[in-house]
Structure formats: C-alpha cells, structure tokens
Design a protein around this nucleic acid. Sequence first.
DNA 1: ACCGGCGTTTGCATCGAGGCAAACGTACCC
DNA 2: GGGTACGTTTGCCTCGATGCAAACGCCGGT
Lengths: 332, 332
Amino acid sequence: MVTRREVAAAAGVSVRTVSNVVNGFVHVAEPTRRRVLEAVEQLGYRPSEMARSLKVGRTGLIGLMLPDLETPYFAELTRDFVEEGAARGFTVVIDQTDGDLERETSLLARAARGGLFDALVLSPIALRADDVTARLPDSPLVFLGETDVPGFDHVAIDNREAARVAVRHLVERGHRRIAAIGWRDDGNGTVELRTAGYLAALEEAGLAVPAGGMPLTGGFGRRYGAAVLHSLVDGGDPPDAVFCFSDSLALGALRAAHDAGLRVPDDLAVVGFDDAEDGRYSVPSLTSVSPDKRWIAHTAFTRIARRLAGEDMPPETLVAPFRLVVRESSGG
Amino acid sequence: MVTRREVAAAAGVSVRTVSNVVNGFVHVAEPTRRRVLEAVEQLGYRPSEMARSLKVGRTGLIGLMLPDLETPYFAELTRDFVEEGAARGFTVVIDQTDGDLERETSLLARAARGGLFDALVLSPIALRADDVTARLPDSPLVFLGETDVPGFDHVAIDNREAARVAVRHLVERGHRRIAAIGWRDDGNGTVELRTAGYLAALEEAGLAVPAGGMPLTGGFGRRYGAAVLHSLVDGGDPPDAVFCFSDSLALGALRAAHDAGLRVPDDLAVVGFDDAEDGRYSVPSLTSVSPDKRWIAHTAFTRIARRLAGEDMPPETLVAPFRLVVRESSGG
DNA sequence: ACCGGCGTTTGCATCGAGGCAAACGTACCC
DNA sequence: GGGTACGTTTGCCTCGATGCAAACGCCGGT
C-alpha cells in the first residue's frame, strides 16, 4: 500500500501538503499541486478509507439487517435502500439473519462495536426490546416491522389496517368463507396485526372464521402456503377466498389450488401481501397489498441523516403508505 | 465513545493491559483481569473496529458487486455468499449496479481505495478488462460470470455446455421448432455462450432456428420474456418449445403463453435457466438449468481466503457444476 | 530598511488499538 | 543473601490521515 509519506517524499513536500492537495484544500500553489498529483499518479497512491474513517469518525456504511433476501419483498426493499443510500453517499451492508435470535443479537453486538456502521436499519424477527437495550450501539437505529423497541425510530405500514382493507375487498367481491394463511403463535407482531385486521374485517361484515380457517403456518415461504392450502382443501368445506400474509404464501397457495383443481378466482379468490414482482406475472396474477417500499427507504434514511447531523429529536413511529393492487386472483 | 484510556484509568492499570485483557492475551493476573473487566462492563466499553482495522490491515468486509438483487438468481447467490462469508468470519457488502458501467467502475474505484474491503467479488455486466486494470485495487478480486479479465480468478459455470444440455433435452422430448429467448447484441459473454450452446444443440440434432427464433431481448426480466413470446406467437408459425436464458424470462414467457391460450408443455415447452425458487412453484413448474450456487460461493471464498493468507498462486478459471432439473414445463 | 499582511507550507498532536521489548516484581534456587 | 527465571505490566512507536496553529517566504507600504 502506497502511503502519503512516499508521495510526499517523491514530490519533495511535507505529508500535510499531500493531504491538502488530495482533499482540494485551501491554498496550494499550482506548481506544488502539479508535482504532488504527478507523484500520486506515478506511485498509484490511494488514500486509506480506514485511516480516514478512524480520524473523522464515519465510515459511510449503513448496516441493513434482514431475515432473508430471497423473499422478494426484502429483495425489493433492499434494492430501494441500496439506491437511496447510494444517492446520499452511503454504502449499505446487508446482513441476513434467517430470523435467528443469535444471529440478530450478534450482528447488533458487532455493530455496537466501534461504529463500523454509521447507523443500523433493523428488520428483526426474534429480537426483543431487552436484547436491544442490553447491547446498545452509539449509532442511530431505525427499526422496520413490528418489533416495538421503545426509544427508537420505527418505520412500518399499518398492518392491521392494510389487512382489513384486503379482506374487505374480498367481502365486497361477495366472498363469505374467507380463510387466512400466515397465522403463527410465536408473538410475531406483524402476524398479530394482520390477523387482527383480518378478524376486524370479518366482524364488520358479520362473517365468521370458516372451519379450519386460521391454520398455523410454519413460515412465509411458498411451500407453507401450498401446504396450508392443501390442508384446507383436504379438510372438506374449503374456503371460497384466502387472505395470505405474504405474496410467497399466496403464490404457494395458487400452486396448490391449481393442483387441487380449483379455479382462481372462480372457486377460490386469493389475496397476497407485499406486491412482489412475482405476483404480477403469475398465472393468475396476484391481488396484493403494496407497501410503499421507496417511501420506507427514503424515510429511514432521512431520519438517519438528521440524527447523524446531530439533530436531537424524539424517536417516532413513521407510518408508510400502502395501496391494494387488484389483479386477476381476486377477480379484478 | 468510551475508549481504552478511560477503562485503564478506571481500573488503575495501563492502556496496554486493557488490550491484553480484552484480547485474552498472554499472562494477566486474575485480580487485574477482574478489575479491568469490571471497568469495561461499567463503562460499556466496546473496542473500535475502525482502529483495529487500521492497525491490523483487515476489515473483514468482502464486497459483492451484482447487477441487481431482484433477479432471484442473484438473490439466492447473495444468500449463499452471505452465509459462506459468515461461516468464515466475513461480512458481505452488497453493491448493486444495474449493470451500469459508471456504477461498476465507481465501486471498483471506491474499493480500490485503502482496502475498505479485504476482497471483492464482481459480477459485472458492462465492465471490461481495461476498466479493471486501469484502477486495480490491492485486494484479491474474483470474477463471476463471463467478463474475462485476464490475471484474475474466475468462477462460472460452463454456459455453453449448460445451454446445450437444456436444448438437447427439448430435442429428446420431440420438439423441432425450438426458439431461444434472451439474445442480445451487446457483447454480453453469458448471452453469447448460451446462444452458442443453443445453436450447437440444434446443429447436432439437424435442426434449424425457427422463424423469428432468435429475437432481440431487452433484458432478463419477466416483462421481456412475456414481450418476446407475444411477438413470437403473433408472428405466426410459433415455436413448439422455447429455451430461455433465465428463469425470469421463462416465467414471463409462461405468463404470455397462458394469455395466448397455449398449453404448456403440450403446445409449448419451456426451459429456463438459474433454477430460482419461483420456478418450482409456478404453474406449470419450470424446467431449468440449476447452477450450483453454493459451490460458487464456497469456491470464491476459498480462493479469497487463500490469497489473503498470502498464498501466491496463478489466477484460475473455476468451472462450477450444474444440472438440468426437469419439471412440468417441459413435460417432465 | 523595517514591518504588517497574505498566501502557502509544515510540525505536532490526535484518532484507538496492537507489536515489541524493556521494566518491573516476586519467588525460587544455589 | 544474591542471582536468575519467570510471570506480569508497561512505554513507546506505528498504522494513515486530519485539525490546528505556528512558521515560512514574499510582497508592498511607509
């Protein structure tokens, strides 16, 4: 690694002057500047990011913690974060946890160490408030999703309302036996809110949860959607519509419906959640709740930037907009 | 930020001793260790990653440059890289370029600076050999895909052979008018090799490219697959099979085939490339070439680790295994 | 000839931690 | 009791770059 010292020696100036030239600083005489730049060029000198970071206390790295990248929702969200970050001069570092508590805490611990990251955006699954406060980093934190850690910024859509809107749409289409796929009993806040919204919409319409209509689901992936729909169908008295807590679940359900000989949306309407690109090209295309991911990325970064700029503001929960995109799977 | 100095003062020892305790170094008397750990705990001291990195010359960060994350292939590949990296104590930093030359070079330039990254894995689209050699970082580079930059390690599957196998499968199924979707005229090596494999398989079977069977495609996304298939169908004399250069293209094609009233695989067989999860749950499920992504991640990291360990070895091209997974879309 | 002022350059200290080898202290052995 | 050996602790220097303020050189003005 070529250092300033060598450049300085080659150009016959002091180390400090090299810095001045490189940083386009104050007054540097033209001949001096030229000599230095020449030496830089010739030796192939590159300033060290690490040393710079140490001195100025910023790395330009933002950590983004996600359960996984294969879920299209997270892949698309990541894209928006990377893009928004690039526009603001940040590099986004992705960490994938699989929703594993140990990996979530270890990332937090690592991030807490000496500010390798200027800030963290967390989308935790298993992490609870205690785990966070126990190993608090100095850098700003923004939480995505439902894990409610008091004292931090929080960006999420109104999951309850979104679910309510989605189910109401099914009601308006004339469906009466509306099941939900995605229920889990592990204290996951997102799941609870979507469930609450689902139940609220049913109640408003004077409907009941159909037989077997609130089955436990092992995860948010396609295979679980397929498995649950199979069991709903096998159970007899199948629903005439399902509201799925993710597009992946919904796509799995579509596949299973097809295998069971059900026509969508005629025999079974399906609504998903996330509006991932997959659902736009599936057969049939998928009706879905579409959270505004760019808004989320933009908002999270705005909070981070303001906090990094030293602004002192109370933590807030910022509610992202969403809309329901109606496509073929619900008869749109 | 709490520093060692404050810990040292609190514990009544020298700064150096704090280091020794924290690093579990050599001989430290038990009472001293206890006092120091107590001070560490009480003050909430965390060693600074940046300072450490500066001193030891490693950050533990590996840069992974990809065109995008929404393509399931890259999302899955990323997953494997992140996982493999975590197992080896590295954090993977994703940079997304959209295949944009400017963003590709700027990342390379940034990475070249003072080794923020210990190594780089590049999956370039627009980047050419010249662009790389012009701004060569000191850290190891591994290239994925077809951009052949002499002098560097290179991990890729044999695209020509893989395409040949895929098309031969269609031939064996009795298809005779086999079109390809994915052709582009921009010097993209991957496209050229898959095209070559496609043509080779046709020639071996004594078949010709069907009318309109080598249409230009704007990209690898679903919409392009859909658009091209539509044009093939509209052109009259449609093919009885298509080999798509990506699963996304194939899924778009499936959707378009459905819209055109074609039954898959009876009227039209479809084969994709990448074996992304989407294709396993689509209707019909998708036959696809499945590159061994874990092998790719593992191999790339092995090379990197060996080079970082100081081993001096000639650059190599490492060929990843693949297999053809036959599913419903080709009558499997 | 001397002085103030400006433009330019430089030395020194600093960021936080690690390498090295010296210094310290105690205990043991002859 | 003195010397050695070992276990333990410490100072000092370095990593590469930046902030600060002093120092330098050169100019014109009186």
